Computed example of a mutant assay.
Amino acid sequence: MRLPSWIAQHTAAVRALLVFTVLTGLAYPLAILGVAQLPGLRDHADGSIVQADGKPVGSALIGQLFTDADGNPVARYFQSRPSAAGDGYNTDSTAASNLGPESVEDTLGPDGRQSLLTQVCARSKAVGQLENVDGRRPFCTDDGVGAVLRVFHTEGLTGAVTRVVSVNQGCPAKPFVAAYEGVPVECAQPGEDYSRGVLVPIRGGAPAHPAVPPDAVAASASGLDPHISVAYARLQAPRVARERGLPLPRVQQLIDEHTTGRVLGFMGEPGVNVLRLNLALDRLPG
């Protein structure tokens, strides 16, 4: 007996659903799982888990913080780059800050938000203090915020200067410059609207090439980057050697041993896996 066309169509649809469920929902995933377990691929497929004393301590693909309970750097370890993923390297919150080069003015007050410039300035100052180097950067104040003024003119954007405010330095902070074009500079009052003033970043006297490298002050796009630059690793080497009582050349040798080259020989820059480097330090005698 011939089935009605609508029943035949539904029957064909159910058969197709079952076939593709088996192919794409079972056969294909199992095939990929089998390939992933081949020698040379299994470690990557399982998350590149790093073991220490038989226990998992992290992944070679995901960075982590080496700080104490108060968030302060543990001096005997190499430090990772900043992370904007949650409280730092949170895989459930992987993200960038979405702040760009024009983010130079802070929002002051209890619910305030730091600009990207101030974040970079504060991090550079902190790294400079930790590593005992000059942490100054262009367009940063000595107290670690963005060196930015709001300049008010008689004609809006032009004319004589009537008022100048250091918008990232909340009162009672002392402005990083005393005067601008002969007008005294004020500290900023939280909640006051300075948007009618012209935004003027001030370069300052910081060196053109800061001692603190860029990856020490800026997070990666994912917030999970497990690597730091060779320059940042070498900047930290004297501190780590001193804290561990090791010769500096031995620590520098470990950095070289844990430096990976450019992808395919030409993409990106050499990097140092912080977790593997710190584990290598812990394995040293004494």
Rank of each mutant, 00 (worst) to 15 (best):
G265R: 03
A173S: 13
G47E: 08
G86K: 09
I62T: 03
Q189R: 14
F266V: 14
A126V: 12
S48P: 03
Y180G: 03
R163M: 01
R123T: 11
V212R: 06
L61K: 05
T21F: 08
R136C: 01
G40K: 04
T259S: 02
D193C: 04
R150S: 14
A221C: 01
A96Q: 14
D225Y: 05
R234A: 08
L3G: 04
R136K: 10
D215M: 04
V22P: 01
T158S: 12
V185P: 06
G25P: 09
T107E: 10
V74W: 07
P110G: 00
V164R: 05
I228C: 03
P214Y: 07
P210Y: 10
A60Y: 07
A233H: 12
L279I: 08
H227R: 12
G261A: 08
P4F: 02
N168M: 03
V272P: 14
G204W: 06
G223M: 03
D143M: 09
G265F: 05
A45H: 13
A231V: 00
P210G: 03
L246I: 06
C140F: 09
E131I: 03
R242Q: 14
A233E: 08
T11I: 14
D70G: 09
D143L: 14
V19Y: 08
R262M: 00
D256E: 09
A60K: 07
N278E: 12
V35K: 09
S59P: 05
Q51H: 15
R15W: 13
R250I: 00
Q169K: 08
G25D: 08
D282C: 07
I7L: 15
R42F: 11
G146P: 08
M267N: 06
V133G: 01
L149V: 04
N90E: 11
E131M: 14
L224P: 03
L99N: 04
G144S: 10
T118N: 00
T154I: 02
